[in-house]
C-alpha cells in the first residue's frame, strides 16, 4: 500500500518538477531582454561572461562582496547539497560509478554541514530584524523543509540504519516500471515524503533561482551596446519612425 502511494507520489513529483522547471526555463528563454543592461564593470566578451557566471554560481561572488555571514552559511548549505546529491546518485545507478563511490564519505558528513548551514540561515532570518522584516511564512517553511530532509537523512545514516538496499531497489524499480517494495521505517518515509514535496514546490517557488540565475541579464550579458546593434524587438524599426518636428525659433 505505502509502496504504491510513494511510487505514485514520486512519478507525480518527478513530472511536476521536470515539466515545471522546463516551463520556467522556456519562459525566461523566450522573454526578450530589450536593452543591454549588465551591471558594470562587466566583461566585454562571451568568455568573460562565462567566467563571471562561473564565479557567481560556484563561489557566490556578489554575496561575498555583500555579507560574509550569509556567504558562509549559503556556501555551506549549497556545497553540501551538491555533495549530498552526488552521493545520492548511488541509489539510482547500478553499478555505482567509481567517482560516486569516492564521494561517499564526503557526502555522508556533508549532511551535518547542510543542516548547520540551514540553521545559520534560519537564525539570520529570525534574529536579524532587517531579514525578519522581509521574510514570509513560506521562507521559514522552506528552511524547515530542508532541515526536515537533512535531519531525517542523518537519522537514517547515523542513528537507526535503514535498509538501503531495499530503498535502492525501490528507486531502480520506479525507473524500470518494475515496482519493488519500499522499506517502511519512519525516517525513510519522512525523508522521501519531504523530498517529494521539495520537488513539487520547486518550480512554483523562489527555488527557481537555481536555473534562473543563468538568465539574469545583469550577469549574463556581454557589455557591448555600442559595438553591437540590438534593436528593441517590440518597437518599430528606426526608418519607420516619425521625428518630433523642429521647434519654431
Amino acid at each position: 500500500m505505502l509502496t504504491v502511494l510513494y511510487a505514485l507520489l514520486y512519478y507525480v513529483a518527478a513530472i511536476i518538477f521536470v515539466v515545471g522547471v522546463a516551463k520556467r526555463v522556456w519562459e525566461y528563454w523566450k522573454t526578450p531582454q530589450p536593452a543591454v543592461i549588465p551591471t558594470t564593470p562587466a566583461p566585454v566578451t562571451r568568455t568573460g561572461v562565462v567566467w563571471r557566471m562561473f564565479k557567481e554560481v560556484a563561489f557566490f561572488e556578489s554575496l561575498w562582496k555583500s555579507n560574509k555571514w550569509i556567504w558562509i552559511f549559503a556556501m555551506m548549505f549549497h556545497l553540501s547539497l551538491w555533495l549530498i546529491i552526488i552521493r545520492h546518485l548511488r541509489y539510482f545507478l547500478d553499478p555505482v560509478p567509481t567517482l560516486i563511490v569516492l564521494a561517499q564519505p564526503f557526502g555522508k558528513y556533508a549532511g551535518f554541514f547542510f543542516v548547520l548551514g540551514a540553521l545559520g540561515l534560519l537564525a539570520r532570518r529570525m534574529f536579524v530584524p532587517r531579514i525578519r522584516y522581509i521574510s514570509n511564512p513560506s521562507d521559514y517553511l522552506m528552511l524547515l523543509l530542508f532541515l526536515g530532509i537533512g535531519l531525517s537523512g542523518l537519522g537514517m545514516t547515523f542513528v537507526s540504519k535503514t535498509d538501503i538496499v531495499g530503498v535502492k531497489a525501490f528507486f531502480l524499480g520506479l525507473m524500470t516500471f518494475n515496482w519493488q517494495p519500499l522499506p517502511t521505517d519512519l525516517p525513510v518515509l519522512v525523508h522521501l515524503g519531504l523530498v517529494a514535496l521539495f520537488l513539487i514546490i520547486f518550480p512554483f517557488s523562489k527555488l527557481v533561482h537555481a536555473p534562473g540565475v543563468f538568465f539574469s541579464p545583469t550577469r549574463n550579458m556581454v557589455d557591448n551596446p555600442r559595438e553591437k546593434f540590438r534593436p528593441v524587438p517590440w518597437l518599430p524599426p528606426v526608418d519607420e519612425v516619425q521625428y518630433d518636428p523642429p521647434h519654431g525659433s
Partner: peptide, 10 residues
C-alpha cells in the same frame, strides 16, 4: 520570481 529573500541587499 527568483529573489530568495536572503537579505544581502537590505
Amino acid at each position: 520570481d527568483i529573489c530568495v529573500k536572503c537579505g544581502a541587499c537590505t
